[in-house]
Write a protein that binds this DNA or RNA. Structure first.
Ligand code: NAD
Ligand code: NAD
Lengths: 212, 212
DNA sequence: AATAAGTCGTGATATTTTTCACAATTCAGT
DNA sequence: ACTGAATTGTGAAAAATATCACGACTTATT
């Protein structure tokens, strides 16, 4: 694997850097320092320099970073020159919101195919994305490698199994179910209820200052 | 602060444990081992035991943990015996989805008040939650301490400032904007586009196995 | 009562992540 | 050309997190 030495914590921040570099570029800014970037993304400037350093010396001492160069570098690092197609399973409250939004800004990831079990939804287009019957997953998924899972929790494992069988590589799971998959498949859980509860917990138990 | 020694990483997992204990309890299970819990929540069993140990000896050697006892313990630790009221700002795609869902399952957090700037939305009820005019924030926020922010990114900082002025303690920010707040106020960012891009990055660069 | 199987709590260790702090370099102004 | 202010890249240290591995204890069984 190309760059297996990049720490996970760093990798998770890359899209954030990329987005802010895009903003700066659109504003016509030519150079940026780790300090400025730090103010914008709320990550310590030393951490930013360290993160960048894993990819080599991208900046110039005493000067900072060239916005256009850095943007180009991250564009290719994040494979933003090509569109990544994503499938969405479960066109309910959350799924519909995602379809309307479709991550259009500043990145090249698109939901191109959606699935649902509800016959009222199957056959419609939402935000320009066709909704297929979940029973046609086999046929319509084609070679999409990433899926967003927004079905009811009880359905999550069954659907995950089908996705795995069909050759998916990664799943962004919004259901509260902790799904089991073979270990070569990557699952990221985004558990909104947990996030909210955790925030409330922090407020009650850590309220003096705001670490993290 | 009561229990400031609990590591942040542990604190973030507490709601997850709580939810699974609730599930087990509803299934009528009386005891559970760190190993079983580990399989369910996909957290190493040693990590679970360590997490629990910060709160004292909650289990019995050779036996495991008593589900009812543990559940009760976490219920009070997470202040689940009382309802936490939350406000939502921005009743758009995402905000509407949250209002319909409203985190009803297994926890005691409720969105009770929503705000929007759109006159078509103001005055309506969504999922039983009244939507007020953002200009009435001052008057209607009352003593709610937690807000969910689902407005357009450009509005995020302005709204955050208003919330701070009104005495908010915590903000769950779904906008891509990295907002600035006084340091005694806690902001958790949930950045869905970043999560998706990070997942895609991991797939391309770490695909051999599935760490974390 | 003795034995075996199971499980916790935790000291010790390993790994990961963040932060400090400074020599080296760049740039702008004179 | 020189000076001073700015800023990187990184070794070293610190902090946070995760994991190993085992003694101590519990329960069930014979
Ligand atoms: N909406 C939220 O704010 C929110 C917040 C946190 C977590 N979640 C979680 O996200 C998931 C989706 O939530 P939601 O509010 O959108 O639910 P929802 O009930 O509105 O949507 C679920 C959708 O999945 C479809 N579906 C059901 N079974 C299916 C199957 N076998 N194959 C394909 N599609 C199927 C349903 O027809 C429906 O359209 C749930 O697991 C929920 O717990 C939602
Ligand atoms: N929808 C998604 O799937 C998604 C995904 C990732 C991030 N986001 C982010 O979440 C935020 C909301 O997204 P969305 O799709 O729901 O947008 P949206 O445009 O559907 O909703 C925004 C809502 O905020 C209201 N609003 C605008 N200005 C306001 C103000 N000053 N005060 C109060 N309300 C105001 C609008 O009337 C609208 O109802 C955006 O910042 C977006 O970038 C959304």
């Amino acid at each position: 694997m190309e760059q297996n030495k990049i720490p996970q914590a760093t990798a998770k921040r890359l899209p954030l850097y990329y987005r802010f570099l895009n903003n700066l570029n659109q504003q016509g800014k030519k150079r940026v320092s780790s300090k400025e970037l730090s103010d914008a993304v709320k990550v310590d400037s030393a951490t930013i320099r360290r993160d960048f350093s894993y990819f080599g010396a991208l900046g110039k001492k005493g000067y900072g970073y060239n916005v256009e160069y850095l943007l180009g570098f991250f564009r290719s690092t994040l494979d933003q020159h090509e569109v990544t197609e994503v499938a969405l399973i479960g066109v309910g409250n959350l799924g519909t919101a995602f379809l309307h939004y479709n991550f259009m800004k500043n990145n090249n990831i698109r939901i191109t195919t959606a699935f649902d079990a509800d016959t009222e939804k199957v056959g419609t287009d939402i935000g320009g994305v066709p909704v297929y019957d979940i029973r046609d997953l086999e046929e319509k998924l084609e070679d999409i490698k990433v899926a967003i899972l927004t079905v009811p929790a009880v359905e999550a494992q069954v659907i995950a199994d089908k996705l795995v069988e069909k050759g998916i590589s990664g799943i962004l799971n919004f259901t509260p179910a902790r799904i089991s998959v073979p270990k070569h498949i990557r699952v990221h859980h985004i558990d909104l209820a947990v996030e909210l509860q955790a925030l409330v917990y922090f407020l009650k138990h850590y309220s003096l200052d705001n670490p993290e």
